[in-house]
Design a protein around this nucleic acid. Structure first.
Lengths: 340, 340
DNA sequence: GTGAAAGCGCTAACAT
DNA sequence: ATGTTAGCGCTTTCAC
């Protein structure tokens, strides 16, 4: 009971015409006579004919499909990106294949390969946290398949990029904490090989410098998930008495610390102010609401898709230097940092 | 600069053998001599040859790809479902094409069609909220492409189904509210054409009946998103004085009502207990933590994919009645309903 | 105005 | 042990 969907040949046979006539009639080719065209179109309609996209792609050597590789669709920032991509894609006649890497390097590699195997016309990639070997992307680059990096990029590979100004975002939010009277700010960050984490940490460092506050290396901890907050709670709590603020590299981690601190008798923001990064919906739901910076996920997705389409529709001979689009963030001041 | 990925013919030409020899060598066909095989494989490796999945699907009339149509990947329940599906799919050699309907009927129709055009082997569908014309699914059914409905089903179309026991879930949670001393329970539900909403409402009604509480039709309101809580806040607040509990059809709505009530001077759960449905991660983050029931999204996704694979790998002649898998929910008692 | 033929990348039955 | 051929569904050039 394998489904056999009607093909152009089926129609041709049924109507006693040739396949090419059917093909032409269906796309209103002027050569085809009115009656033939009408007859064919009516029949196609009746049998619910739909062109086989696989055959079309094979023939045309263009799939009108682009591949997305993204860490985890659960996260609001990533699904906003996807929505942005999809909306542009649909409006320009592209389809989208979404793959999750689950922040896993191996899965990412498999996904990239599978998308290439499916002959996607281009790739939109947000690199996994655990990836520090980029050869699978180098080989995409070498194979000439256009690729745009989103948010998490690889500096070595010279493609179009759409990124957040993480440095200034972190600087902004750290300055905001300082303006609110905080001087001993704990930073929960990522491993340094992740560029966004590195930049956010640098922004934090810069803000301290701007305000003549000495950097205490003890106040920078690698901790970027709620799970890690749990596993490192002893360290965090041992520091809690000596700090007046926490700046976490993302909102989930910020919320997790906030709960940890609250459950251990600290008042937020009175004893310790807390700030995150990303403006996830939970930021407005937690108590107190979380100060954070908004990343324009949706717009970044749109921009990335537009850049990709530009590459795809560029005349073959034309060359264009890789473009880098930097999105600024906006501070969302909320109660978790209001100390006066 | 259209990327030309190496084909079997390219290899054949380069090595002075025929395409079929290359094809056979690459899949270790016993007919091919050791030296030829080694030579071909080495070359293929060198040029990074990868089979064209489109050509394979066209040839084999099987794409090893399944299509997913789901309302919105942002929601934890849906992305859990997708993870469940993906994990089974990957382990059995299937790829997955994910489409979001954004709860929009038109988009859903387009998505289903696009997936069929891409000749997916089967479809996993969670119907959009706004869909009340099911002809696009009927035509999938008629075209013999296997389809499994997930969570939100269409009763008229006899396919495999994986659903939550919404009736008993709602009955369970309503009973829990009653046990905690609530008698005037406001139910925020969906439009009746959405089966899950209908069943949850019936479960609510049944629990009242079980406990000899009269049903007050005024206490059932159509309201199933945070946005709708906002737009109907006057109605909700006008009822707030006369009720002692709210049971919302999902957690987002529950959280939104909770915040609305809190901001208007009601204490949760002292004045009004609040319960949701689904056990979204926000349920443990809000203050007070939200009582709800857990839906096994991940397991439901796995089950659905398994059912689909079973259909796909069934001998052509074999027939099997549609299977219906019902998942029970588990009560997650939290502070938002603890009144004593 | 319509048909025949070739080819996109691949496989498999059928030669040799 | 290897090559030739046909065909999956479709388009397009070239014939008539």
């Amino acid at each position: 009971m394998k489904p056999h969907l009607t093909s152009i040949n089926d129609i041709a046979r049924a109507l006693g015409v040739s396949a090419s006539t059917v093909s032409r009639a269906l796309k209103d080719h002027p050569d085809i006579s009115e009656p033939t065209r009408i007859k064919i179109k009516a029949f196609a309609q009746k049998v619910n004919y739909r062109p086989n996209a696989l055959a079309l792609s094979l023939k045309k050597q263009v799939s009108n499909t682009i591949g997305i590789v993204i860490p985890e669709i659960v996260h609001h920032f990533f699904s906003s990106i996807i929505s942005g991509i999809e909306d542009i894609a649909y409006s320009k006649g592209y389809r989208v294949m979404i793959c999750q890497s689950n922040e896993d390097y191996e899965r990412e590699k498999v996904n990239v390969q599978a998308l290439l195997d499916h002959r996607v016309d281009g790739l939109l990639v947000c690199i996994s946290k655990t990836t520090d070997d980029f050869s699978h992307f180098t080989s995409v680059y070498n194979s000439q398949v256009p690729m745009v990096f989103l948010d998490r990029i690889c500096k070595k590979i010279e493609t179009d990029r759409v990124i957040t100004d993480d440095f200034n975002g972190a600087r902004l939010i750290t300055s905001h904490l300082i303006e609110n009277g905080c001087k001993r700010i704990l930073h929960l960050g990522t491993l340094p090989h992740l560029l966004i984490g590195h930049d956010r940490q640098q922004g934090y460092v810069q803000a301290l410098k701007d305000n003549n506050i000495d950097l205490d290396p003890e106040l920078i901890i690698k901790c970027d998930t709620p799970a890690e907050v749990e596993s490192k709670k002893d360290i965090i709590l041992s520091l809690a008495g000596k700090i007046d603020a926490v700046f976490a590299v993302n909102d989930f981690t910020a919320v997790a610390v906030m709960n940890l601190l609250k459950n251990n008798g600290f008042e937020i923001p009175k004893d310790i102010a807390v700030a995150g990064f990303g403006d996830d919906p939970i930021a407005t739901i937690v108590d107190p609401p979380l100060t954070t910076v908004e990343q324009q996920g949706y717009q970044m997705g749109q921009e990335a898709m537009n850049l990709l389409i530009e590459r795809l529709t560029m005349p073959d001979n034309e060359m264009k230097a890789p473009e880098i689009k930097v999105f600024q963030v906006e501070l969302r001041k909320r109660k978790s940092t209001q100390r006066s």
